[in-house]
Design a protein around this nucleic acid. Structure first.
Lengths: 231, 231
DNA sequence: ATGTAACATGATTCAGTTGTCATATTTATT
DNA sequence: AATAAATATGACAACTGAATCATGTTACAT
């Protein structure tokens, strides 16, 4: 990806002394807060430097533009979320169990980091390329794990990428409805519904035709019909 | 809803002659295009009136602010999408069939109205209240239909609202992945996966009581908290 | 202690933005 | 035709916010 080279974004000058490091951090913390509260477009650089308690010129010492500090925060967020979910899910066995726990962990994360999460919602408008990188990279990883689970026979065999997007959508929208909008966990009834939907949707270990694994090719007439002229 | 009174938004002055009507429309069309291309925040009123070919003062004859013309477009879009999906789905019988066709119709709509769809993505940041109205109203309707299908035994009984958000998420994310990002319909393999996920996730008519003995009961371990279906 | 690179400042410049208003034209009404 | 109401104009006042830069101030290696 041209978006990110190595582990560093361009447009960001890392400080070289501990004094600079402190200022750098102050700016990032301030930016996270203000972006989270008012959104990217409603936030000015002056808002950020005011909250950080530094002068305007100082900002441009470390970030080339407002967008650059935003990007930096987003990449940070991406790693944080993954770490959080990964950690919660690691000790469990079986894709379904991981999937369920992962959804709850994701909801928790939203509740505990509303500000950071809001950044993510701005991302699509601020930098579409980075946005695609964000979800694309998420999906890729997700699909890999799903693929493995399919091989192990833990879930039904199908297109891992499509499945990944289904699951991300499900996570994001339920995370929006309760944690984000109501600022509390999804009620038990909703969780139960979601879990069942996941369980049946993914397919249980013993579920499928006991027969041999299907031949990886699509187009087996099942639901078949494409909607529109598919160009 | 305080957002919308009757069928008209405040901040909008409808024209009173056919000449005015033409100008009004020109402005709306121009706004749809520019918003779609550059996004709400990157678009200025000057951009809009330039494309519409009218003077700046004319804009303020019909719209109080930039936000007001945006809101007007969004409400319009909401009705358009619903009409499109409704129309595609109406002749079909059974929730599952409707659900499948609805997803394809939704994807079609995105392909045919990329600009309008993009507005929607901006909405969350521009006017959160209207955004919640948008999805909330969608979800409410959706849940109502799902509830009816449950009563008829067409799909598994569960919390209709939670299910509605799952399905919306699934629609939105798959619509993003292929129609929006790649500007073409989802490939057959992906559609098949999505359909199967829907089919199993929603539960088939004959599913419930009969069928192979599911030794697997839900609620163990992580799922933990059982709750009666409240709301 | 001194030289130097890093760090910090904030007034200022500059490129935009919104929204208004006096003026002019068109349309509907009588 | 006369009049009022609606529509259109574009210059402009008033404002916003990003980014710069000349002028400092620290920290630290030598």
């Amino acid at each position: 990806m041209s978006v990110i080279n190595g582990n560093e974004l361009e447009g960001v000058n890392r400080p070289k002394t501990s004094r600079g490091e402190a200022t750098f951090r102050k700016l990032l913390e301030a930016a996270e807060e203000v972006f989270g509260e008012k959104g990217y477009y409603e936030t000015s650089v002056v808002d950020i430097i005011t909250r950080a308690g530094v002068a305007q010129g100082t900002f441009y010492l470390y970030f080339k533009t407002k967008k650059d500090i935003f990007r930096h925060l987003v990449v940070h967020l991406h790693h944080e979320i993954r770490k959080h979910v990964q950690l919660a899910v690691a000790p469990l066995n079986g894709r379904l169990a991981k999937e369920k726990r992962g959804l709850l962990a994701f909801h928790e994360f939203i509740l505990q980091h509303r500000n950071l999460y809001r950044l993510l919602r701005d991302l699509e408008l601020v930098d579409e390329e980075l946005f695609k990188w964000y979800y694309g990279s998420f999906a890729k990883n997700y699909a890999r794990r799903l693929g493995k689970a399919m091989e192990k026979g833990e879930i039904r065999r199908s297109d891992p990428e499509a499945l990944a997007y289904c699951l991300m959508g499900l996570n994001v929208f339920t995370g929006m409805r309760w944690p984000l909008w109501e600022n509390k966990p999804a009620p038990a009834g909703a969780v139960e519904t979601i879990f069942t939907f996941l369980e049946k949707g993914l397919g249980n270990p013993g579920d499928g035709p006991a027969g041999p694994p299907p031949k990886e090719q699509e187009g087996k007439g099942t639901a078949g019909k494409r909607g529109t002229g598919d160009s």
